[in-house]
Design a binder for these strands. Structure first.
Lengths: 139, 139
DNA sequence: TATTGTTATACTCTATAACTATA
DNA sequence: TATAGTTATAGAGTATAACAATA
């Protein structure tokens, strides 16, 4: 009759922490009419300048098919533009409005990142990122 | 043109690590015809003996309405039983089959937990759980 | 009045299969 | 042959509103 059978299970804590974090971040980004995946795409485009839909999907682990409504949303909002690379692929880039929104996203996410880390006791803080990365990154 | 703009963002690593973990655990539990939330309910009932649907929902952060199909699934599988506490509430308990399935769940999750921890470099390993708990637990 | 269990509903995220057009 | 972009669809998780019955 243990009162918390999940206390020592890192998988459960990982799920709860991720859900809590995503809920908070969704609410913050919602003020800019963006979802978390939208913001991820803006950040990625800001870092790479120009990418195709398939390239974005591979980097963010989003299926090709699921990129379609995501990019339509960003395009309808005027945040990205598409230009043909050949008759098959398109280069996706940030518009000026997209660049401005990305600056806002960076302010929000940098602040949120600091908030998250501040919640962690100092002696554990620097271990979180390398521990998490070991759980999902290739190699 | 940084090639990985998410490298230092714990929120992103948290999401990716949680998704990877849930995908693996879902596959493992799927061999026993269980979802992650199903297994969580079995573990909780194993620890508390008897709980109402609302109590389970509060402990696992699942809405009352979403408990309905979850418990129907477990009941149809013969893993739980309901007995009236009064004319409003029901006590939910594990059946013998549910207790047996819970033993299997514990073997799977204990092994998976060890697998997860083994992936983390030793110097970071013991910091993951307290760091994650600080991110979502009240207080 | 507050709570329990329930129904109905909707939105998001994710996954797969299939199609065309092109590399 | 493999890949890019797309359409359609389905499963799963999650959220809210509303209801009847009971504490």
């Amino acid at each position: 009759m243990n009162s918390d059978p999940f206390a020592a299970f890192p998988g459960y804590a990982l799920r709860r922490a991720a859900n809590a974090m995503m809920g908070e971040l969704s609410a913050l980004l919602g003020a800019g009419e963006l979802r978390i995946s939208d913001a991820s795409v803006l950040i990625l485009l800001g870092a790479h300048g120009s990418l195709t839909s398939s390239e974005i999907g591979r980097k963010l682990d989003i299926q090709r098919a699921n990129m379609v409504p995501l990019l339509q949303r960003l395009e309808s909002a005027g945040l990205i533009a598409r230009q043909p690379l050949d008759r098959k692929s398109q280069a996706i880039t940030l518009t000026p409005a997209g660049t401005a929104r990305l600056a806002w996203v960076r302010r929000v996410t940098d602040d949120f990142e600091a908030t998250l880390l501040a919640r962690i006791p100092a002696e554990h803080r620097d271990h979180l990122l390398p521990a998490l990365n070991a759980l999902w990154q290739p190699g």
